[in-house]
């Protein structure tokens, strides 16, 4: 309600952040001017190189932690780190809005103090924000921290307006006015016309040395800063360069002979560019904002493998080492079977099959030719068996082995086997005899021969019986004749003396 009309209803300013592409991303200059000493730091690519850090790391605000800026800076390898947010020095509680690397740490509920933030699209935001704007999800803040007093708005000092806007309770006005006017150590953040983020700090001691906010605003304005807000100062004002304290803190140590840096709350950190994703998908190293992927993983995020799963076909697996082929397959895209004689992973194993057996390219199992068996096809079929796997039984005679391939009975095929020579000879004889018998076909069948033989036998038997009957009949009809022997010359004697002769029956002549 109380801001000048020239700003309309807008209570904050935005500016596109610089996206300096070079390797260099930060430049810090120390200054010693009048009685002032401090540093002005220019950050070229703030979206990728600036982070608001919780004390000691993530979760520090929830634990109400306070840590030295050096300690917190080490958690993120900050090249330059400064204190930033306000906090309760008694309890350690972080105050205001805090978004750290896209993570909402603390929402103040729209507290009316100057804010500095970086949105996801790289927009730098300075000014007053409602709770709805803080929680915007369309273009959310990736970094956000609260300060007190908007020093410069659009190139003009904006302190008076800030006092009215940030302190509506009359009784507190005096405190805020003193806060602005007193000289002390100061810390601030702003941006220039090129969108570079400007970190500022000046050493001091409250009421003794240092700068008031008017002087800070003027110095920043002279340096080309467009918008800037004031951050925590006094003894909290700390500047750390490459992990080491590089300013003069104003809090006394316990022994009061030295000055000591204060353990503070949040830290504004300038680091090397972050990668997207920050851990390079755990398959690469982030170097100046670019993921350098491990072999086999594809840029820019290192989330995908170099080879595409489809490129490895049905017989391969896409891995970080390229296509890894299944056992029995080879080639860049695993499309070729192992060459003959090899099998297994990467076709590195040698087949052991002999006698013409083929090798299974996956496990190396032998497929034997007909007539052979065994793990390596090293054995011929045992006698009496033939064919694939020697499972078929020969139909040859006992003495005649069969061909182990075709199963045909053959006497010569085993000639090379000494143990079979004798059997083969017998087999050959039997074969020849069988062939001869087949060639010698009889004119009459065996049955015919049986009939003929039987008939002849019957005739012979009949004849024999007839003769016996006849002989027996004569023996019974007349007595036994006596025989006498007469010399032949008597038989051939003179014819005229037939009386001398005693004629004998004709039978006797025959004798």
């Amino acid at each position: 309600d109380c801001q000048p009309l020239i700003y309309g209803n807008l209570t904050h300013e935005t500016w596109p952040a610089s996206t300096h592409p070079g390797v260099s991303f930060v430049k810090s200059k120390a200054f010693l001017y009048k009685n002032w000493s401090g540093h002005i730091t220019e950050v070229y690519d703030p979206l990728r190189t600036v982070s608001v850090l919780e004390p000691g790391g993530p979760g520090g605000c929830k634990e109400f932690r306070r840590e030295l800026v050096e300690t917190t800076a080490k958690t993120r390898k900050c090249v330059i780190a400064q204190n930033c947010g306000f906090f309760n020095t008694h309890t350690g509680q972080c105050l205001g809005n805090i978004v750290s690397d896209g993570r909402q740490v603390k929402n103040s509920g729209g507290v009316q103090n100057a804010q500095f933030g970086i949105r996801e699209d790289g927009t730098l935001v300075f000014g007053y924000l409602s709770e709805e704007e803080v929680l915007d999800r369309i273009n959310p803040f990736v970094q956000l921290v609260s300060g007190v007093v908007w020093l410069l708005r659009s190139g003009k000092v904006y302190i008076e307006e800030s006092i009215r806007a940030e302190c509506e309770k009359t009784q507190e006005t005096g405190n805020l006015q003193r806060f602005v006017d007193v000289i002390s150590a100061r810390t601030a953040v702003g941006h220039d016309t090129e969108g570079r983020l400007i970190l500022f700090h000046v050493d001091g001691k409250t009421d003794t040395r240092g700068m008031n906010l008017w002087e800070v605003a003027e110095l920043l304005k002279e340096h080309g800063v467009i918008n800037a807000i004031n951050l925590d100062g006094g003894g909290s004002s700390t500047y750390v360069l490459n992990g080491s304290l590089a300013n003069f803190p104003s809090d006394e140590c316990e022994d009061k002979s030295w000055y000591c840096p204060r353990a503070v709350s949040t830290v504004l950190c300038v680091h090397e560019r972050l990668c997207q994703p920050e851990d390079c998908s755990q398959h690469g190293t982030c170097v100046n904002g670019q993921c350098e992927c491990q072999p086999g993983w594809a840029a820019p995020t290192c989330a995908n493998l170099t080879c595409q799963p489809s490129a490895c076909g049905e017989h391969g697996l896409c891995t970080s080492d390229g296509c890894v082929c299944d056992a029995g397959w080879r080639g860049v895209n695993c499309s070729q079977e192992c060459t003959a004689g090899f099998y297994g992973d990467e076709c590195k194993k040698t087949c052991t099959c002999v006698n013409g057996g083929s090798c299974d390219p996956v496990r190396g199992r032998c497929t034997c030719r007909a007539g052979f068996h065994g793990d390596s096809c090293e054995q011929e079929c045992p006698l009496g068996f033939y064919g694939l796997h020697c499972l078929q039984e020969c139909q040859c005679s006992d003495l005649c082995p069969c061909d182990p391939v075709s199963g045909s009975c053959n006497a010569t095929f085993r000639s090379e086997r000494n143990t079979s020579l004798h059997r083969a000879g017998h087999c050959l004889a039997i074969q020849m005899w069988k062939e001869w018998r087949e060639q010698e076909k009889p004119y009459l069948s065996e049955q015919s021969w049986v009939v003929i033989t039987a008939t002849l036998a019957a005739v012979l038997l009949t004849s024999l019986i007839g003769n016996l009957i006849q002989v027996c009949g004569k023996c019974k009809g007349r007595p036994q004749q006596e025989y006498s022997y007469v010399p032949l010359k008597e038989v051939n004697g003179p014819r005229d003396s037939p009386n001398r002769s005693t004629m004998q029956p004709a039978k006797a002549l025959f004798q």
């Binding site: 209570t11 306000f86 906090f87 309760n88 020095t89 105050l95 205001g96 103040s108 509920g109 729209g110 507290v111 009316q112 103090n113 007053y128 924000l129 409602s130 709770e131 709805e132 704007e133 609260s146 007190v148 007093v149 940030e166 302190c167 509506e168 309770k169 009784q171 507190e172 405190n175 805020l176 806060f179 007193v182 002390s184 150590a185 001691k205 409250t206 925590d232 100062g233 006094g234 003894g235 909290s236 803190p249 104003s250 809090d251 006394e252 140590c253 316990e254 022994d255 009061k256 030295w258 000591c260 840096p261 204060r262 353990a263």
Partner: peptide, 29 residues
């Protein structure tokens, strides 16, 4: 024993009683 601790003596408080903003809030109307 060489660690030195700050005495938090150089306090620069913008608001009385606290070290930080603790007052009105803005809402979108």
């Amino acid at each position: 024993k060489h660690v030195r601790h700050s005495m938090d003596d150089d306090l620069l408080l913008p608001y009385a009683g606290t070290h930080g903003p603790s007052h009105s809030h803005r809402h979108v109307r």
